[in-house]
Amino acid sequence: MNLDRYLPGVMAGDADAFAKWMIEAEGPLRRSLAPLAAKVDAEAVLQEALLRVWQVAPRFTPDGRDNGLLRLAVRIARNLAISELRRTHGRAAEADELERRLEQVAVAPRSPPDPHLRRLIEDCRQKLPDQPRRALAARLEAEGSLSDARLAEDLGMKKNTFLQNFGRARKLLKACLQGLGVNVEEELA
């Protein structure tokens, strides 16, 4: 699967084309940061890397091999992570070792979730108890743009209660999906 099919739009500054590219690039890019998950905030690195890809994409020159933009994104994310590690830890040997481990992570695009899964998740969401269902809906609607403290406040919950309800919602959803025959470990890994 070659994500460079979105390149013309991305290079032309089409945010919708970039969204389509990100939908398929997010998973492999996130997994490429796994060796550093204990040392840097991978979510922050991932989002900053995606923003920088968007900024440099108009000047990107394909090398003729598949997934050129994804390979660039992986390099940007790794460089950001290693810079952050050196800034916060300052131990060069540890950063060098992690850099070596990062180089060994294979990166390949993955298909987005099956549309059929969406219907099953919707069925399972309807069965959630009230508080977990509200917490899950709030997180989904916020789309990462509001803090959990703010979401909890809007729902009249304490932050930790909100987070417990969200965690409960995810566990119940997984159990429900499993009951419907979904291989949860494979679908959500």
Binding site: I23, E26, L140
Partner: peptide, 24 residues
């Protein structure tokens, strides 16, 4: 976070996870 991303993408009409939406 990886699980959340797949769940969010599966429920979003345009298959966007919260990470993708936040970047946009």
């Amino acid at each position: 976070a990886g699980e959340n991303c797949r769940l969010e993408a599966a429920t979003h009409p345009d298959r966007r996870s919260s990470t993708v939406a936040a970047v946009l």
